[in-house]
């Protein structure tokens, strides 16, 4: 199995948590004998290559961070440059009557895949720990696969990844489990296995954990954030209100 992997993070590769996750994930793919090519949405110079690869790939994985409950603006901008599949490109009467709507009406390039429709799977990661935080975006990813004329290969959903950037020891702990998920993807070419579903962890935390973590937020976690800020040279309180007059 050969996969096209698109890192949909707008952060440059060096600072991309999604890239750190993909490093482990692809190690797992290697174990299953799979190969891949990876591109970065954060580097516009790769967009033409990515677009060409999209049409000759049977297996595509888009890995992305959650940005305000859906996909990041930059990833969306890239995806907008892919021609739309034929059955969705038929202009509707409303658009035809609207002379300002050139962008949607004049897109007569049809998607042409080299063989059958590719299987498009997603790796969706976020900062908040609970699975429920990622479900809205997950719902969109299924819509997106259809809109791009692809077969939907499922989404690996996982939160609690904020620490990857800030803490070396956290990084290993957080990213290592993705290796096993990569081996499943390398084996199946999709992410619909029961193991992938379980990987998300709890949808919400039970009440006693919420109480405990709530206390940690006000103490240890808050201090941790202040330390991160100090390391970045921040000299203002984290709840500063710069535009309030």
């Amino acid at each position: 199995m050969h996969a096209l992997i698109i890192n949909g993070s707008p952060r440059i590769k060096k600072y991309s948590n999604t890239d750190k996750i993909l490093s482990k994930f692809t190690e797992g793919m290697k174990e299953s004998g799979a190969t891949w090519e990876q591109y970065e949405v954060s580097d516009r110079q790769q967009w033409d290559t990515m677009r060409d690869a999209f049409f000759r790939s049977e297996h595509i994985l888009i890995a992305l961070p959650l940005f305000f409950e859906c996909i990041p603006g930059l990833l969306l901008e890239f995806l907008e440059t892919l021609p739309v599949p034929e059955k969705l490109s038929t202009p509707n009467p409303e658009k035809l009557s609207d002379p300002m709507c050139e962008k949607h009406c004049n897109n007569d390039t049809k998607i042409e895949f080299s063989a059958s429709a590719p299987t498009l799977s997603f790796l969706l990661q976020g900062g908040f720990s609970e699975g429920i935080q990622l479900r809205c975006c997950e719902a969109y990813l299924e819509i997106l696969a259809e809109r791009l004329g692809c077969r939907y290969g499922g989404t690996l959903v996982k939160g609690d990844n904020f620490g990857i950037r800030f803490d070396e020891s956290q990084r290993e702990r957080v990213t290592t489990p993705y290796q096993k998920m990569g081996s499943i993807y390398g084996r199946d070419g999709e992410l619909t296995d029961e193991e992938c579903r379980k990987f998300t962890g709890p949808e919400v935390f039970p009440a006693y954990i919420r109480m405990l973590v709530g206390v940690l937020f006000k103490t240890v976690v808050k201090k941790g954030f202040m330390k991160m800020a100090a390391d970045w040279g921040c000299d203002r309180p984290l709840d500063d209100r710069p535009y309030e007059s």
Binding site: F67, F68, I71, G73, E80, I143, L148, K222, L238, D239
Partner: peptide, 23 residues
Amino acid sequence: ALGFVDHKGKNIIDRMIPLATMN
């Protein structure tokens, strides 16, 4: 675009992040 708001619309929402604190 693609069943959703287009990237220009999404960028307006994504850039609202300074309205939240880290806490």
